[in-house]
Nucleic acid binder design. Structure first.
Lengths: 185, 185
DNA sequence: CCGATCGAGTTGACACTGTCAACCACGCAT
DNA sequence: ATGCGTGGTTGACAGTGTCAACTCGATCGG
Protein backbone atom coordinates (compact mmCIF):
# COMPACT_ATOMS: atom_id res chain seq x y z
CA UNK A 1 0.00 0.00 0.00
CA UNK A 2 2.82 2.37 0.83
CA UNK A 3 4.43 1.35 -2.43
CA UNK A 4 1.51 2.56 -4.48
CA UNK A 5 0.69 6.00 -3.20
CA UNK A 6 3.21 6.90 -0.56
CA UNK A 7 3.10 6.85 3.17
CA UNK A 8 -0.20 8.67 3.37
CA UNK A 9 -1.82 5.86 1.44
CA UNK A 10 -1.35 3.48 4.37
CA UNK A 11 -4.78 3.18 5.92
CA UNK A 12 -5.62 0.81 8.73
CA UNK A 13 -9.12 0.48 7.39
CA UNK A 14 -7.87 -0.50 3.94
CA UNK A 15 -5.49 -2.99 5.52
CA UNK A 16 -8.41 -4.52 7.36
CA UNK A 17 -10.50 -4.56 4.21
CA UNK A 18 -7.84 -6.40 2.26
CA UNK A 19 -7.51 -8.90 5.07
CA UNK A 20 -11.24 -9.40 5.06
CA UNK A 21 -11.66 -8.40 8.67
CA UNK A 22 -13.43 -5.57 10.38
CA UNK A 23 -11.97 -2.09 10.47
CA UNK A 24 -11.22 -2.36 14.17
CA UNK A 25 -9.47 -5.73 14.22
CA UNK A 26 -6.00 -4.22 13.61
CA UNK A 27 -6.37 -2.26 16.83
CA UNK A 28 -6.21 -5.52 18.74
CA UNK A 29 -2.62 -5.86 17.55
CA UNK A 30 -1.43 -2.26 17.20
CA UNK A 31 -2.64 0.45 19.48
CA UNK A 32 -2.48 3.07 16.75
CA UNK A 33 -1.54 3.63 13.17
CA UNK A 34 1.78 5.05 14.33
CA UNK A 35 2.53 1.96 16.37
CA UNK A 36 1.95 -0.19 13.32
CA UNK A 37 4.15 2.10 11.28
CA UNK A 38 6.89 1.98 13.90
CA UNK A 39 6.80 -1.80 13.91
CA UNK A 40 7.08 -1.86 10.14
CA UNK A 41 10.10 0.41 10.39
CA UNK A 42 11.63 -1.88 12.97
CA UNK A 43 11.37 -4.84 10.60
CA UNK A 44 12.95 -2.78 7.87
CA UNK A 45 15.84 -1.85 10.13
CA UNK A 46 16.44 -5.46 11.11
CA UNK A 47 16.29 -6.63 7.51
CA UNK A 48 18.59 -3.80 6.46
CA UNK A 49 21.14 -4.59 9.18
CA UNK A 50 21.08 -8.24 8.11
CA UNK A 51 21.76 -7.24 4.53
CA UNK A 52 24.68 -5.11 5.66
CA UNK A 53 26.12 -7.89 7.79
CA UNK A 54 25.84 -10.37 4.94
CA UNK A 55 28.21 -8.23 2.92
CA UNK A 56 31.09 -9.62 4.97
CA UNK A 57 30.94 -12.82 2.96
CA UNK A 58 31.22 -13.43 -0.76
CA UNK A 59 28.90 -15.48 -2.93
CA UNK A 60 30.63 -18.67 -1.89
CA UNK A 61 30.12 -17.88 1.75
CA UNK A 62 33.79 -17.20 2.32
CA UNK A 63 34.67 -14.23 4.54
CA UNK A 64 36.03 -11.24 2.68
CA UNK A 65 39.13 -9.33 3.63
CA UNK A 66 38.55 -6.27 5.80
CA UNK A 67 39.13 -3.94 2.87
CA UNK A 68 36.89 -5.90 0.59
CA UNK A 69 34.20 -6.09 3.27
CA UNK A 70 34.32 -2.36 3.72
CA UNK A 71 33.96 -1.64 0.02
CA UNK A 72 31.24 -4.21 -0.42
CA UNK A 73 29.35 -2.70 2.49
CA UNK A 74 28.99 0.52 0.55
CA UNK A 75 27.71 -1.22 -2.55
CA UNK A 76 25.33 -3.39 -0.57
CA UNK A 77 24.03 -0.29 1.17
CA UNK A 78 23.33 1.48 -2.11
CA UNK A 79 21.97 -1.67 -3.66
CA UNK A 80 19.58 -2.17 -0.79
CA UNK A 81 18.39 1.42 -1.00
CA UNK A 82 17.86 1.07 -4.75
CA UNK A 83 16.05 -2.23 -4.46
CA UNK A 84 13.89 -1.29 -1.50
CA UNK A 85 13.25 2.41 -1.93
CA UNK A 86 10.15 2.38 0.24
CA UNK A 87 11.79 0.60 3.10
CA UNK A 88 14.73 2.93 2.82
CA UNK A 89 12.53 5.96 2.83
CA UNK A 90 10.67 4.66 5.84
CA UNK A 91 13.85 4.11 7.79
CA UNK A 92 15.82 7.21 6.87
CA UNK A 93 13.73 9.41 4.65
CA UNK A 94 10.69 10.36 6.66
CA UNK A 95 10.52 11.46 10.26
CA UNK A 96 9.77 8.57 12.57
CA UNK A 97 6.39 8.61 14.28
CA UNK A 98 6.54 9.96 17.78
CA UNK A 99 5.98 6.58 19.40
CA UNK A 100 9.15 5.27 17.78
CA UNK A 101 11.18 6.55 20.70
CA UNK A 102 8.96 4.85 23.25
CA UNK A 103 9.38 1.42 21.73
CA UNK A 104 13.14 1.78 21.34
CA UNK A 105 13.45 1.94 17.58
CA UNK A 106 16.75 3.75 17.93
CA UNK A 107 18.45 0.58 19.12
CA UNK A 108 17.68 -1.18 15.87
CA UNK A 109 19.10 1.76 13.96
CA UNK A 110 22.19 1.64 16.11
CA UNK A 111 22.66 -2.03 15.24
CA UNK A 112 22.88 -1.09 11.56
CA UNK A 113 25.27 1.75 12.24
CA UNK A 114 27.46 -0.54 14.33
CA UNK A 115 28.03 -2.75 11.32
CA UNK A 116 29.54 0.19 9.51
CA UNK A 117 31.57 1.23 12.51
CA UNK A 118 32.97 -2.25 12.99
CA UNK A 119 33.92 -2.54 9.32
CA UNK A 120 35.58 0.82 9.39
CA UNK A 121 37.45 -0.08 12.56
CA UNK A 122 38.76 -3.26 10.97
CA UNK A 123 40.64 -1.37 8.27
CA UNK A 124 42.20 1.24 10.53
CA UNK A 125 45.78 1.06 11.51
CA UNK A 126 45.39 2.78 14.85
CA UNK A 127 42.24 3.51 16.72
CA UNK A 128 41.80 7.03 17.91
CA UNK A 129 38.73 8.97 18.90
CA UNK A 130 37.80 9.77 15.34
CA UNK A 131 36.29 6.39 14.54
CA UNK A 132 32.78 7.61 15.23
CA UNK A 133 33.38 10.79 13.28
CA UNK A 134 34.69 8.89 10.29
CA UNK A 135 31.86 6.42 10.45
CA UNK A 136 29.36 9.24 10.58
CA UNK A 137 30.97 10.88 7.58
CA UNK A 138 30.88 7.69 5.56
CA UNK A 139 27.30 7.04 6.52
CA UNK A 140 26.07 10.53 5.77
CA UNK A 141 27.82 10.52 2.41
CA UNK A 142 26.50 7.14 1.36
CA UNK A 143 23.10 8.11 2.68
CA UNK A 144 23.30 11.30 0.65
CA UNK A 145 23.94 9.33 -2.52
CA UNK A 146 21.17 6.88 -1.72
CA UNK A 147 18.62 9.55 -1.07
CA UNK A 148 19.59 11.51 -4.16
CA UNK A 149 19.12 8.37 -6.23
CA UNK A 150 15.90 7.51 -4.49
CA UNK A 151 14.44 10.97 -4.89
CA UNK A 152 15.00 10.92 -8.63
CA UNK A 153 16.65 14.28 -8.18
CA UNK A 154 19.02 13.51 -11.01
CA UNK A 155 16.18 13.07 -13.44
CA UNK A 156 14.88 16.47 -12.40
CA UNK A 157 18.33 17.90 -12.96
CA UNK A 158 18.34 16.50 -16.50
CA UNK A 159 20.96 13.85 -15.83
CA UNK A 160 20.64 11.04 -18.32
CA UNK A 161 20.29 7.51 -17.07
CA UNK A 162 23.92 6.81 -17.92
CA UNK A 163 25.18 10.01 -16.39
CA UNK A 164 23.26 9.30 -13.20
CA UNK A 165 24.89 5.90 -12.93
CA UNK A 166 28.27 7.46 -13.58
CA UNK A 167 27.62 10.08 -10.92
CA UNK A 168 26.90 7.41 -8.32
CA UNK A 169 30.11 5.57 -9.16
CA UNK A 170 32.00 8.85 -9.12
CA UNK A 171 30.70 9.70 -5.67
CA UNK A 172 31.50 6.26 -4.34
CA UNK A 173 35.01 6.60 -5.70
CA UNK A 174 35.44 9.89 -3.87
CA UNK A 175 34.38 8.37 -0.58
CA UNK A 176 36.57 5.38 -1.25
CA UNK A 177 39.53 7.71 -1.66
CA UNK A 178 38.86 9.36 1.69
CA UNK A 179 38.37 6.08 3.50
CA UNK A 180 41.42 4.36 2.15
CA UNK A 181 43.78 7.24 1.59
CA UNK A 182 45.78 6.97 4.82
CA UNK A 183 46.35 3.30 4.05
CA UNK A 184 48.18 4.17 0.87
CA UNK A 185 50.25 6.82 2.59
CA UNK B 1 0.99 24.01 10.74
CA UNK B 2 3.57 21.78 9.13
CA UNK B 3 5.99 22.86 11.83
CA UNK B 4 3.79 21.54 14.59
CA UNK B 5 2.81 18.08 13.56
CA UNK B 6 4.53 17.28 10.31
CA UNK B 7 3.38 17.29 6.75
CA UNK B 8 0.23 15.32 7.47
CA UNK B 9 -0.91 18.10 9.79
CA UNK B 10 -1.38 20.46 6.87
CA UNK B 11 -5.11 20.63 6.32
CA UNK B 12 -6.79 22.95 3.87
CA UNK B 13 -9.80 23.14 6.14
CA UNK B 14 -7.72 24.17 9.12
CA UNK B 15 -5.97 26.76 6.96
CA UNK B 16 -9.36 28.16 5.98
CA UNK B 17 -10.50 28.11 9.60
CA UNK B 18 -7.49 30.08 10.77
CA UNK B 19 -8.05 32.59 7.99
CA UNK B 20 -11.66 32.94 9.01
CA UNK B 21 -12.98 31.91 5.63
CA UNK B 22 -15.03 29.00 4.45
CA UNK B 23 -13.50 25.58 3.94
CA UNK B 24 -13.82 25.88 0.18
CA UNK B 25 -12.27 29.30 -0.31
CA UNK B 26 -8.72 27.95 -0.65
CA UNK B 27 -9.86 25.95 -3.65
CA UNK B 28 -10.36 29.20 -5.53
CA UNK B 29 -6.60 29.70 -5.35
CA UNK B 30 -5.22 26.17 -5.35
CA UNK B 31 -6.91 23.42 -7.23
CA UNK B 32 -5.90 20.82 -4.69
CA UNK B 33 -3.98 20.27 -1.51
CA UNK B 34 -1.06 18.99 -3.55
CA UNK B 35 -1.02 22.12 -5.70
CA UNK B 36 -0.82 24.24 -2.58
CA UNK B 37 1.94 22.05 -1.26
CA UNK B 38 3.83 22.26 -4.54
CA UNK B 39 3.57 26.04 -4.49
CA UNK B 40 4.91 26.12 -0.94
CA UNK B 41 7.83 23.98 -2.06
CA UNK B 42 8.48 26.34 -4.94
CA UNK B 43 8.77 29.28 -2.57
CA UNK B 44 11.14 27.31 -0.40
CA UNK B 45 13.30 26.48 -3.40
CA UNK B 46 13.47 30.11 -4.49
CA UNK B 47 14.31 31.27 -0.98
CA UNK B 48 16.90 28.55 -0.65
CA UNK B 49 18.55 29.42 -3.96
CA UNK B 50 18.66 33.07 -2.90
CA UNK B 51 20.37 32.12 0.33
CA UNK B 52 22.92 30.09 -1.59
CA UNK B 53 23.59 32.92 -4.03
CA UNK B 54 24.02 35.41 -1.20
CA UNK B 55 26.96 33.37 0.05
CA UNK B 56 29.08 34.86 -2.73
CA UNK B 57 29.39 38.08 -0.74
CA UNK B 58 30.68 38.70 2.75
CA UNK B 59 28.99 40.68 5.51
CA UNK B 60 30.25 43.94 4.03
CA UNK B 61 28.74 43.09 0.67
CA UNK B 62 32.13 42.53 -0.93
CA UNK B 63 32.47 39.60 -3.30
CA UNK B 64 34.41 36.68 -1.90
CA UNK B 65 37.19 34.89 -3.71
CA UNK B 66 36.11 31.83 -5.66
CA UNK B 67 37.60 29.52 -3.03
CA UNK B 68 36.01 31.40 -0.20
CA UNK B 69 32.68 31.48 -1.99
CA UNK B 70 32.80 27.74 -2.49
CA UNK B 71 33.55 27.03 1.16
CA UNK B 72 30.96 29.49 2.37
CA UNK B 73 28.40 27.90 0.12
CA UNK B 74 28.72 24.69 2.06
CA UNK B 75 28.28 26.38 5.40
CA UNK B 76 25.36 28.45 4.18
CA UNK B 77 23.75 25.29 2.87
CA UNK B 78 24.07 23.51 6.21
CA UNK B 79 23.08 26.60 8.09
CA UNK B 80 19.96 26.99 6.01
CA UNK B 81 19.02 23.37 6.53
CA UNK B 82 19.55 23.71 10.27
CA UNK B 83 17.61 26.95 10.54
CA UNK B 84 14.73 25.90 8.30
CA UNK B 85 14.40 22.18 8.89
CA UNK B 86 10.80 22.07 7.67
CA UNK B 87 11.50 23.92 4.49
CA UNK B 88 14.50 21.70 3.90
CA UNK B 89 12.50 18.57 4.50
CA UNK B 90 9.82 19.78 2.13
CA UNK B 91 12.30 20.44 -0.63
CA UNK B 92 14.57 17.43 -0.33
CA UNK B 93 13.27 15.17 2.40
CA UNK B 94 9.84 14.10 1.30
CA UNK B 95 8.71 12.98 -2.11
CA UNK B 96 7.22 15.81 -4.12
CA UNK B 97 3.51 15.64 -4.81
CA UNK B 98 2.72 14.25 -8.22
CA UNK B 99 1.61 17.61 -9.60
CA UNK B 100 5.06 19.05 -8.92
CA UNK B 101 6.22 17.87 -12.33
CA UNK B 102 3.30 19.47 -14.12
CA UNK B 103 4.00 22.91 -12.74
CA UNK B 104 7.71 22.70 -13.43
CA UNK B 105 9.09 22.57 -9.91
CA UNK B 106 12.21 20.88 -11.18
CA UNK B 107 13.38 24.10 -12.79
CA UNK B 108 13.49 25.85 -9.44
CA UNK B 109 15.50 22.97 -8.03
CA UNK B 110 17.85 23.21 -10.95
CA UNK B 111 18.41 26.89 -10.22
CA UNK B 112 19.69 25.97 -6.76
CA UNK B 113 21.89 23.23 -8.13
CA UNK B 114 23.30 25.59 -10.74
CA UNK B 115 24.63 27.85 -7.98
CA UNK B 116 26.71 24.97 -6.71
CA UNK B 117 27.83 23.99 -10.17
CA UNK B 118 28.91 27.54 -10.99
CA UNK B 119 30.85 27.87 -7.74
CA UNK B 120 32.56 24.59 -8.30
CA UNK B 121 33.41 25.53 -11.85
CA UNK B 122 34.99 28.78 -10.68
CA UNK B 123 37.62 26.98 -8.65
CA UNK B 124 38.58 24.41 -11.27
CA UNK B 125 41.72 24.75 -13.22
CA UNK B 126 40.54 22.93 -16.29
CA UNK B 127 37.04 22.10 -17.24
CA UNK B 128 36.37 18.56 -18.25
CA UNK B 129 33.23 16.52 -18.37
CA UNK B 130 33.38 15.70 -14.68
CA UNK B 131 32.00 19.02 -13.46
CA UNK B 132 28.48 17.66 -13.14
CA UNK B 133 29.74 14.52 -11.48
CA UNK B 134 31.77 16.47 -8.96
CA UNK B 135 28.90 18.84 -8.28
CA UNK B 136 26.58 15.92 -7.73
CA UNK B 137 29.05 14.36 -5.33
CA UNK B 138 29.40 17.56 -3.32
CA UNK B 139 25.69 18.07 -3.25
CA UNK B 140 24.85 14.54 -2.21
CA UNK B 141 27.46 14.63 0.53
CA UNK B 142 26.35 17.95 1.93
CA UNK B 143 22.77 16.84 1.62
CA UNK B 144 23.66 13.68 3.49
CA UNK B 145 25.08 15.69 6.36
CA UNK B 146 22.11 18.03 6.40
CA UNK B 147 19.59 15.25 6.47
CA UNK B 148 21.46 13.35 9.14
CA UNK B 149 21.48 16.47 11.29
CA UNK B 150 17.86 17.20 10.53
CA UNK B 151 16.70 13.68 11.30
CA UNK B 152 18.32 13.79 14.73
CA UNK B 153 19.88 10.49 13.83
CA UNK B 154 22.94 11.37 15.87
CA UNK B 155 20.89 11.71 19.00
CA UNK B 156 19.47 8.25 18.35
CA UNK B 157 23.00 6.96 17.94
CA UNK B 158 23.97 8.37 21.32
CA UNK B 159 26.16 11.12 19.95
CA UNK B 160 26.46 13.94 22.44
CA UNK B 161 25.63 17.45 21.35
CA UNK B 162 29.31 18.30 21.14
CA UNK B 163 30.21 15.15 19.31
CA UNK B 164 27.46 15.76 16.80
CA UNK B 165 28.81 19.21 16.10
CA UNK B 166 32.28 17.79 15.77
CA UNK B 167 31.01 15.13 13.37
CA UNK B 168 29.50 17.75 11.10
CA UNK B 169 32.73 19.72 11.01
CA UNK B 170 34.67 16.53 10.42
CA UNK B 171 32.48 15.61 7.48
CA UNK B 172 32.73 19.07 5.99
CA UNK B 173 36.51 18.88 6.31
CA UNK B 174 36.53 15.59 4.41
CA UNK B 175 34.52 17.05 1.56
CA UNK B 176 36.70 20.13 1.59
CA UNK B 177 39.73 17.91 1.15
CA UNK B 178 38.23 16.24 -1.89
CA UNK B 179 37.10 19.48 -3.46
CA UNK B 180 40.36 21.33 -3.03
CA UNK B 181 42.87 18.55 -3.18
CA UNK B 182 43.86 18.88 -6.85
CA UNK B 183 44.43 22.59 -6.30
CA UNK B 184 47.16 21.88 -3.77
CA UNK B 185 48.74 19.25 -5.98
C1' DC C 1 -16.22 -29.71 35.51
C1' DC C 2 -17.44 -24.91 35.75
C1' DG C 3 -17.06 -20.19 35.80
C1' DA C 4 -13.85 -16.29 35.21
C1' DT C 5 -10.76 -14.15 32.30
C1' DC C 6 -8.72 -12.67 28.34
C1' DG C 7 -7.61 -12.39 23.42
C1' DA C 8 -9.55 -11.29 19.01
C1' DG C 9 -13.24 -9.91 16.36
C1' DT C 10 -17.50 -7.28 15.70
C1' DT C 11 -20.70 -3.01 14.94
C1' DG C 12 -21.64 1.70 15.65
C1' DA C 13 -20.55 6.21 16.39
C1' DC C 14 -17.74 10.72 16.19
C1' DA C 15 -14.88 14.20 14.45
C1' DC C 16 -12.01 15.02 11.04
C1' DT C 17 -10.19 15.17 6.14
C1' DG C 18 -10.18 16.37 0.69
C1' DT C 19 -13.13 17.21 -2.88
C1' DC C 20 -17.40 17.89 -5.93
C1' DA C 21 -21.43 20.63 -6.84
C1' DA C 22 -24.38 24.24 -6.77
C1' DC C 23 -25.33 28.82 -5.63
C1' DC C 24 -24.27 33.94 -4.76
C1' DA C 25 -22.28 38.65 -5.08
C1' DC C 26 -19.51 41.91 -6.93
C1' DG C 27 -16.38 44.42 -10.47
C1' DC C 28 -15.41 45.23 -14.98
C1' DA C 29 -15.28 45.21 -20.01
C1' DT C 30 -17.95 45.11 -24.23
C1' DA D 1 -27.04 47.22 -19.57
C1' DT D 2 -25.49 42.83 -19.72
C1' DG D 3 -22.62 39.07 -19.37
C1' DC D 4 -18.98 36.90 -17.25
C1' DG D 5 -15.14 35.79 -14.47
C1' DT D 6 -13.46 35.94 -9.68
C1' DG D 7 -13.72 34.86 -5.05
C1' DG D 8 -16.82 33.64 -1.71
C1' DT D 9 -20.52 30.64 0.38
C1' DT D 10 -23.15 26.19 2.07
C1' DG D 11 -24.07 21.38 1.63
C1' DA D 12 -23.04 16.90 0.60
C1' DC D 13 -20.12 12.47 0.11
C1' DA D 14 -16.68 9.13 0.83
C1' DG D 15 -12.90 8.13 3.35
C1' DT D 16 -9.96 8.32 7.59
C1' DG D 17 -8.27 7.30 12.78
C1' DT D 18 -10.05 6.30 17.02
C1' DC D 19 -13.26 5.49 21.16
C1' DA D 20 -16.75 2.56 23.13
C1' DA D 21 -19.46 -1.29 23.86
C1' DC D 22 -20.61 -5.83 22.66
C1' DT D 23 -19.78 -10.95 21.36
C1' DC D 24 -17.59 -15.30 21.10
C1' DG D 25 -14.39 -18.85 21.96
C1' DA D 26 -10.42 -20.71 24.19
C1' DT D 27 -7.86 -21.36 28.27
C1' DC D 28 -6.95 -21.88 32.95
C1' DG D 29 -7.58 -21.98 38.20
C1' DG D 30 -10.52 -23.86 41.69
Amino acid sequence: MIASGGLEALSLREVARRLGISHQAPYKHFSSRDHLLAEVIRRCLKDFADALRSSAFDEAGQPRTAEDAMRTLGFVYLDYAARHPLQYRLMFGTPWPAVAHDIGLAEDARAAFDVLRARLNAIRKRDDHTLDLDAMFVWSSIHGIASVVESEAMRHLNFSEDKAREAVLHAVRMIDRIVFEDRHA
